[in-house]
């Protein structure tokens, strides 16, 4: 039993079992509290709501593991969405076809990746602190977006986009499919590729990584480029979900993504963290939010509960660590 626990812990990332326990607890509590919780409709709506925050959290995840931060994720997503919206509107608006959408999406991803790449280059080659660089980029992109849209909404997109934002593939909501695919890609990228390996090493000690022959500057640039691209995917999804683009949409999610990363056991100092526990953390946050919603609370109460939940989890982790080390001393 103990060996199994240790193996699961190692394979999936530390703390997964604790998070699963939490998830089960929350599920049971809400099932008992309201009959509407254990319904297909509720799980369906959760599956549609989760991916937006999920994709943005993935965009935040990789920089944090590398010992950095990306505070520009929301506006990168907005600007990317804006790119797609502009291309759609320039090419027929409501009558635009699938090829235009695909081209627009590619352009959106390119724009997201580009803004990430600029950040990465400044962080890698100038050596400035990621919090500061991404903060400046955030202010810039917000300004750019507001300048381009004059603070308004952009809408008037073809109908088939509704099928992406609200449709199903094999009975699974399309946004959820996109998110799970993205999470899988991230998981493989971080745990199985040379780039991912380098991300962890850089997160622990960038100079030692450099001495060991890792191309640290290229890796840093790539981290923020990939983060930007992931933001773009979130931006495209947001466009299809709301059928409009507004700069500033999702602003409140910025710090929630950081919260989800910490909840998922990402080391705030960098060097350690896994995708699976972060996905679990996201599911817990979503369940909390949906459950509270069914009980009549609004999103704001959920936000408060999320914050308190993070504090509670950190305290529990501290207790566990203290307990373990006092055990070790006794041995």
């Amino acid at each position: 039993m103990r060996a199994l626990y240790a193996r699961l812990d190692k394979e999936l990332g530390t703390g997964v079992i604790g998070l699963v326990g939490f998830l089960l607890l929350v599920l049971v509590v809400f099932s008992l509290a309201t009959p509407q919780f254990l319904t297909v409709a509720n799980f369906g709506s959760m599956a549609f709501q989760l991916p937006e925050l999920g994709l943005l959290t993935l965009a935040m995840l990789m920089p944090i593991i590398s010992g950095g931060f990306n505070l520009a994720i929301i506006y990168t997503a907005n600007i990317s969405g804006l790119t797609l919206a502009w291309i759609l509107n320039q090419n027929g608006g409501v009558d635009a076809g699938m090829p235009v959408f695909l081209f627009g999406s590619a352009a959106a991803i390119a724009v997201g990746a580009l803004s990430g790449c600029v950040m990465g280059l400044v962080i890698a080659y100038v050596g400035a602190h990621p919090i500061l660089v991404s903060l400046a980029m955030m202010i810039f992109l917000r300004g750019l977006g507001e300048f381009l849209t004059r603070g308004g909404d952009i809408s008037g997109f073809p109908d088939f986009l509704h099928g992406i934002g609200h449709g199903f593939i094999l009975g699974i909501p399309v946004p959820l499919v996109i998110f799970l695919a993205a999470a899988l890609v991230w998981h493989v990228l971080l745990n199985r590729t040379r780039h991912g390996f380098s991300v962890f090493m850089i997160g622990s000690n960038i100079r030692a990584a450099h001495y060991s022959g890792i191309h640290t500057k290229r890796t840093l640039t790539l981290i923020y480029t990939l983060s930007g691209a992931m933001c773009a995917i979130a931006g495209i999804l947001m466009l299809t979900r709301f059928n409009s683009v507004r700069v500033g949409h999702g602003e409140a999610l910025l710090l929630v993504t950081v919260l989800a990363c910490f909840l998922g056991g990402i080391d705030p100092f960098g060097g350690f963290g896994r995708v699976v526990p972060v996905v679990l953390a996201l599911v817990i946050l979503q369940v909390l939010s949906s459950g509270l919603n069914l009980l009549g609370a609004n999103q704001h109460l959920s936000t408060a509960v999320w914050g308190l939940f993070l504090i509670a989890v950190m305290i529990l982790r501290w207790l566990a660590a203290t307990y373990r080390s006092s055990n070790r001393k006794r041995e």
């Binding site: 962890f200 090493m201 622990s204 000690n205 100079r207 030692a208 990584a209 001495y211 060991s212 060097g271 350690f272």
Partner: peptide, 9 residues
């Protein structure tokens, strides 16, 4: 400590 090895890994 600082350059030869990535100590925490």
């Amino acid at each position: 400590l600082a350059l030869g090895l990535v100590q925490p890994q």
